[in-house]
Design a protein around this nucleic acid. Structure first.
Lengths: 339, 339
DNA sequence: TTGTAGGCGTTATCAT
DNA sequence: ATGATAACGCCTACAA
């Protein structure tokens, strides 16, 4: 088995110096055509590839971007990753992904691991547990050490860095407005607990839409779910006996759960109750009835985040002004709402 | 902004040598308690962390495992990753994920990138395009350079390495046998094109179940889908006017598409037609009717793959015997089949 | 107890 | 046209 070959080995075999080999392979004008040919042929034969680690050490940069996300199940994150990769590859960067599994400790470990030389910068969406603990020292730490960080989706106000978010509040507003325009008057909200930033914002959008239209916010029609694993039961219990004509759910899962619960309770979607969810995923299209959702344009988000990060990585000056980019959502109307 | 601090800087600040610092931070007995204290305190203050890149270069190992998978949308891959991470972290390894997006070129790039020093070994499931081209030089290359590779799910016979697969054929067999036991006689198969190894195997299992039960294999009842993006139309067209009492689909997507098509055609699932899919994903549970599937135990698969890889990484001898581990599947019966 | 030197693989600078 | 040397950050055998 031929181990990976190094410049040194090539040099020895060909009885030249290491620097000659290095230059030859870079097609330097300093080296004679003869030797260049010889060296290149040999290198090709042994499939020489420069060692990234050595290059990284020498250049003090890795040309790779680290992505840290809570979980990968979500179709949304997949699209964001695609957007990041697209831009990154175009600019000659590689991308490596680490999952926090929504665990604070895991997030800290991942960040430390990647920050110690493995990446030039980060694009991240923080773990639920981290938002709950409100402990962001690990992120601030890497930033203070000069690693650029771009946050997306679940962002933290108190961490100073570039951010890309969608207009959660406005997206929710539009969805609820749509329901109101359909003459719905008793619109339930199924949200997450408030420490999840997006849940909070979407709830705010819901409330604003109601008040803007002179509808009362009825806390009895608002459900906040802590434990996603048992959302189905919670939602069934919540909807039982409620007199409603629409449901707005802050994610795909809850929307599906709501429809199932409503069906169980003998209500027809969309005839009796219209339902709109948030985040367009795989389930939305497949589900019967297909789900109306607020679409988040994940790919644009990823692309924007990558641009912001790379710009910072490659700018000479240490710009201290950070920006938050707000991307619009769009409403996708499918079968789960009345026509 | 305090840049990341190095041993050298600490040494200079404290007016000692670099090796003294290095030893002190490792709590070496060679260094006096006084200096150790002093150095440790200073290091802590400046949050010193050894540079991974330098360590990797020195040790010629990175303690990280590279995962290369076609796409991340599949719930199945998510579970595999979880299994890998669990074992890897336990053994002190980190995990980085790269996506091939089912593209051959991307797979080659990812492999080259990670093979040049970034990882100690790979766990991978090959891209669809790669299986189609039957070009595996890139994988053979890294293996010949001494990087252990473990393949899972979509494995390649002609590449010699450890493999972890599920008993695709047997899983399919069991599913179809189940349908036969329900007295189904006209069972359609919706599969992928044959170059996708798992599609081929599952098709074989389907056929074997039929022949074992003295049922004829009717090629008219077999659909092979090339273009996943238009599977819905294909399936509708295929099922139109077909006299069948069951459908076995080789993935979740096709199963869902089939149910939708059947519903459109006025057939009831499961009363008129029973449906079983392969791979238990997010959609299966949510769908109405909930999907019966062949469950793949992705987490076990990932764990096994990680064990195999780490064993090879840490064994002194260069074992030349490779093993293929076959994991059992299990049938999950939900509402999409008759009781 | 502390320091020096060499090396991991590469490249840039400065000889020869 | 080619080679020697130093440096990136770390560790360790050996020297002082």
């Amino acid at each position: 088995m031929k181990r990976k070959i190094t410049l040194k080995q090539i040099a020895k075999e060909l009885d030249v110096s290491v620097s000659t080999v290095s230059k030859a392979l870079k097609d330097s004008a300093e080296i004679s055509v003869d030797t260049k040919e010889k060296i290149k042929a040999f290198a090709k034969l042994y499939n020489y590839k420069p060692n990234n680690i050595a290059l990284s050490l020498k250049n003090r940069k890795t040309k790779t971007i680290g992505i840290i996300i809570p979980e990968i199940v979500h179709h949304f994150f997949t699209t964001v990753i695609r957007g990041i990769e697209h831009v990154a590859n175009e600019k000659g960067y590689n991308v490596i992904i680490c999952l926090s599994n929504n665990s604070f400790d895991k997030e800290v470990l991942n960040l430390e691991f990647l920050a110690n030389g493995s990446t030039d910068g980060f694009i991240m969406s923080v773990a639920k547990e981290t938002q709950q603990k409100e402990d962001y020292h690990h992120i601030k730490e890497v930033i203070s050490q000069g690693m650029p960080v771009v946050m997306f989706d679940r962002v933290i106000d108190e961490v100073i860095c570039d951010k890309v978010v969608i207009s959660d509040k406005h997206g929710a507003f539009e969805a609820v407005q749509y329901l109101i325009d359909l003459q719905c008057k008793k619109i339930a909200l199924i949200s997450t607990v408030d420490y999840v930033s997006v849940g909070k914002l979407r709830t705010a959008g819901y409330k604003e839409a109601l008040t803007t239209n002179d509808l009362e916010v009825n806390e009895d029609l608002i459900l906040k779910i802590e434990d996603v694993d048992h959302s189905q039961e919670k939602i069934e219990e919540f909807l039982k006996g409620k007199d409603i004509d629409a449901v707005f759910a802050v994610n795909e899962q809850f929307a599906v759960n709501a429809i199932k619960a409503l069906t169980k309770l003998g209500k027809k979607v969309p005839n009796d109750v219209s339902v709109i969810g948030f985040t367009d995923g795989v389930v939305s299209k497949s589900f019967i009835p297909s789900l109306s959702t607020v679409n988040q344009h994940g790919e644009d988000m990823g692309a924007k985040a990558a641009h912001l990060l790379i710009e910072r990585l490659e700018s000479e000056t240490e710009e201290q002004i950070f920006q938050t980019t707000v991307l619009d959502t769009s409403l996708i109307i499918r079968d789960s709402v009345k026509k």
